[in-house]
Structures are given as C-alpha cells and as structure tokens.
Design a protein around this nucleic acid. Sequence first.
DNA 1: CCAAAAACATACCGATCAGTATGTTATGCA
DNA 2: TGCATAACATACTGATCGGTATGTTTTTGG
Lengths: 196, 196
Amino acid sequence: MKKAQLTRQALLQKAFEQIYTGGYQTTSIDAILAATAVTKGAFYYHFKNKDEMGLALIEEVLRPTLRLQFESLLQSSDDPLQAIYRLMQHLLFENDLLQAAHGCPMGNLTQELTPWHPVLSTALDQLLQDWIQLMTQLLQKGQQSGFIKTAVSARSVALFVLSGYWGVRSIGKLGDSRTVYTAYLNELKRYLNTLR
Amino acid sequence: MKKAQLTRQALLQKAFEQIYTGGYQTTSIDAILAATAVTKGAFYYHFKNKDEMGLALIEEVLRPTLRLQFESLLQSSDDPLQAIYRLMQHLLFENDLLQAAHGCPMGNLTQELTPWHPVLSTALDQLLQDWIQLMTQLLQKGQQSGFIKTAVSARSVALFVLSGYWGVRSIGKLGDSRTVYTAYLNELKRYLNTLR
DNA sequence: CCAAAAACATACCGATCAGTATGTTATGCA
DNA sequence: TGCATAACATACTGATCGGTATGTTTTTGG
C-alpha cells in the first residue's frame, strides 16, 4: 500500500476507535490528529471536512466489517436460527473489536447523528437496509429448507431480532452489561426456537 | 404556581423538546433561551450549569412521564401480555408527545451521553432500572395469575421486550418508521403469545 | 412602606474546534 | 535530473458556546 493510503487508513482507524468509544461530536479532529501523529494539513488533504471523513468511515470501515460478520454468520451453521443466535452471542461477548460498555458502533452513530445530520444518516440507513435484507433472505432460505415455520414473516423476524440487538447494546452501555447480555441471550434463544 | 417556578418549568419543557428532537450537545443554551424568551441570567439562576439542567430534565420531566405511561399500562388490561402490547402500540403510534422520527427520549439521551457523561448516565440508568423492575413485577404477577407460563424468566422477558422497543425506535429514526413499527408490532404480538 | 433577598437582565470572557491560508517536503515521471 | 504534483506541515481565523461578572427589577416579609 502506498504511504499516503497508509496515513488515510490510520486516520480512519483512529477516528473509528475514538468515535466508537466517545461519540462523533465529542471526537475532535485535533484529538484524532494527536492520536495518529498526523497534522491538520494531511487530514484536510485526505478529507474535505469532518463529515466527509465520517462518510468514508461508514463506507470504508463499518461496511466491510459488517460484511465480514455476516459472512462468518452464513458459514457458522446450516440452521439459520442457530446461526443467528451464534452471531449475536459472538457480537455481544466474543468479538474483541466491540466492547460491552461502548454499544454497537452503527447504533451509536445512528442515534447521535439522526436528528441533525441527514447525509450521514442516509448512509447509515443504507447499511441497515443491507443488514436487514441479508438476514431476511437467510430466514427465507430457512423457511424453504424447513427449518423455520412458514407462518411467520421473515422480514418481521429480522427486524425484531435486529431491534433487540440494537436495544440491548444500548441498555448494556448503562449498567452491568454482562448480566444484561446473558439474560437477553437466554430469551433470544427461547424466542428463536418458537420459530421452528 | 409561583412565577419563578413557571419560568423554570418553561425552560425544562423547551429544553426537553429541543433535546428530544435535536440531541443534547446540539441543543445550545442560547437556543433554549431564544425559544423561551428567558435570559441567560435567569437560566443560571435556576440551574448551576447545563448538566444540572439535564439532570433536572431527567428527574422532573422524564421520570414523571414514564411513571404516567406505566400507570396507564397497568390499568389497560388484566392480561399483562395484552397490556404490554397495548403500551408498545401506544408508545409507537398513538402518543402525541413521542414522534416516530425522533425516537425514544430516554434511549436517545442514553446513547448520546453514555460515552462521556457519567453523572447523567447514572441518572438514566436508575430510570431504566425502575422501568425494567416494574415490567418484571407485572410479568411475575401474570405468572402467578396463570396468564404466563412459569418456565420463562420474567426479568429476561422484560429486558427482551424493552430492548426491542429501544432498538426499533432507533431503527425507526432512519427509514420509513411506519412500516417498521407495524412489522415490529406484528412480531411482538406473536412473541408475546408464545409466553402463554 | 421599606429593606433584603429572590428573580431576572446584559455584556463580556475564555476555551474549543472546524476549517483555511500558506507554506514545505516527498514522490513519480518524462 | 528536473519539474510537476502529490503529500504533508504550521500558523492562524472566525464562529460557537458554556459560563461569569455585574448590574437591575421584582417579590416578599416584617
């Protein structure tokens, strides 16, 4: 990789970390520069402004990461319900990029930016739609292969599951996230089994 | 009510509106003052600083509102599962204080403040714990009166339901909230029935 | 009615922060 | 090798915003 691309990646990476743990507004460009030992001139050479960096962050960091998670989800089991459960378990407990106290990166950004930043919100919406659609298709395939009863709406289930995930990550940011997550996973497992 | 208390209430009310629709950081004190025709001197007479106003907002606006919602929930039906469903339906569609595009006030604040504001986060956590506990007790009563199977954990269910609610309100802020909400409610109803 | 405190008004300050202006150095290519 | 441009460095600006200093008005109690 060219050296210039390396600094760009470094900026995006540190920006992601700081924004994930501290929020978008709270993370100043100066703080990112201090953490990366990059200067302001370099930053504004690579990005027109802070928002464009945010956009690049969504497209070049968040999107590939999510894609990766979902691919491992697809390979984790033939049974889509078990695959979904394992994914959630992984996202809540085992993934070392995600930390309990800091919630879901995408959920965090959505919540913070939605009221006042239409451009980034639209980008996040597109990501979410992909996410929903992938899980819906997975569930539909599960219905065709007889794993899941056909009486339920795959899209509703996908939405229901993702809602629960976003929500529990929010709740986990407040109190004792470990016990919250285990309680949630228990009930999620029970819920998923009612779909068979 | 004394005149001084009226201005205090006006400040909290407008602050709530602006913070609910625009976020905590984005809402400047100056903006609140402009909306209320109150001056800065009056503001800092009533509140030591912005954060103390945020705390008053949580305790004096959010808490009573939630309490009100829950009381109407308790009176809405003998069947706790139906009561919960009706509450969610009401919160998502019928409540005119809450608007689809702006999410859940408490969820919004939690998401935005958690990373960097421990004091307000603690206050929000206490509110949430009340919320969870009330719903847990409601479910336990439902188990005792035979509405709900005793095999499930009331606390897990409460957490599961509240997570879904917070999550779907987040998701609803992004895209077409109406269809999202209806799909969610459909699956929620199905889920709740599996608890019988 | 009048002092004292409550309640409010106005002008200002200092820090932060996104963004810019203007440079300098590194790199690739003819 | 030299030059054009990419890539970065430094110093600065203008606006915003939370908070303060210092007033003035209003209310209250004796």
